[in-house]
Simulated scan of single mutants.
Amino acid sequence: MTAPEVSSAREDQITGLGALIATAFDDDPLFTWAVPDRERRHRRLPAWAVASVRTGLAHGVVDTVDGGSVAVWYAPGHTPRMLDQLRGGALGALLRLRPGDVRRLAAAERQAQAAHRHHDPESAAWYLAFLAVDPEHQGQGHAGALLRHGLARADRTGAPVWLETNAERNVAIYERFGFEVVAHERADGLPEFWGLLRPARGAEEPARED
């Protein structure tokens, strides 16, 4: 089978890729906890996801495979500030949520940011903010292609890579690509959390599944 071809996302794909992220993360432990009402998640999360893709295009790198999957990456030191996210449309998305939903999302964001700062204090790592595959394209190698593409880019710069997840099923997948769990938290009132770091590799070392 031919390996999926990764390309840079375009402006005209923002809405579709945002909808893809919202669909892929609909049952994610973070979002089922933060927005427990399923109907409200279906109505509100797409706007937030679209804003996330727009911010990624403005401040990072957004990769896709034929619009059926997406990965949003930020180079070392370039993770967007809150003002950048608000300008990208996050404010409008948050205003569509209930106050309790916003408080829960903010608490989870603080947890993730604290872990990131602790394990990457110099902001030396690439940050994989999102990786999502449309359910219709799962099992076709999209996730692996996006990871290998992004990790090869990080390797060319000699930088480590950071990501976080609230889904235990994802941990083993990332470990196969060289990530190591450096933070695992079961804080009261928050969903279980894993922070993973992939050590820096030289440009001569190919990105591979370990």
Rank of each mutant, 00 (worst) to 15 (best):
T2A: 15
E5C: 11
S7R: 11
D12I: 06
A19V: 10
A24C: 05
A24W: 06
D26Q: 12
P29A: 05
A34W: 04
A34P: 05
R40P: 05
R40E: 12
R40M: 07
H42D: 14
H42N: 12
R44H: 12
P46R: 07
A49S: 13
G56Q: 05
L57V: 08
H59W: 09
V61C: 12
T64V: 02
T64H: 11
V65F: 00
V65Y: 04
D66S: 10
S69C: 09
V70W: 06
V70F: 09
A71T: 03
W73K: 04
W73F: 08
W73C: 03
Y74F: 13
P76Y: 01
M82C: 12
L83R: 14
Q85M: 15
G88W: 03
G88T: 04
G88A: 02
L91I: 01
A93L: 05
A93T: 03
L97T: 01
L97K: 00
R98W: 02
P99E: 01
A112F: 08
Q113E: 15
H116I: 02
H116Q: 14
H118A: 15
H119Q: 10
S123M: 13
S123E: 14
A124L: 07
A124T: 13
A124R: 13
A129M: 08
A129G: 12
L131D: 07
A132K: 00
A132I: 03
D134T: 06
D134M: 04
P135Q: 06
A145M: 02
L147A: 03
G150V: 01
G150A: 03
A152V: 01
R153M: 10
R153A: 13
D155K: 08
D155M: 09
D155E: 13
R156C: 09
T157F: 14
A159G: 06
P160I: 04
V161N: 05
E164V: 11
T165A: 05
T165N: 07
N166T: 14
I173P: 02
I173S: 05
E175D: 07
R176M: 09
G178T: 10
G178M: 06
V181L: 04
A183Y: 08
H184T: 06
E185L: 14
R186Q: 15
A187I: 12
D188A: 15
D188V: 12
P191M: 08
F193V: 05
G195Y: 07
L196F: 00
R198L: 00
R198G: 04
R201L: 15
R201T: 13
G202C: 07
D210T: 15
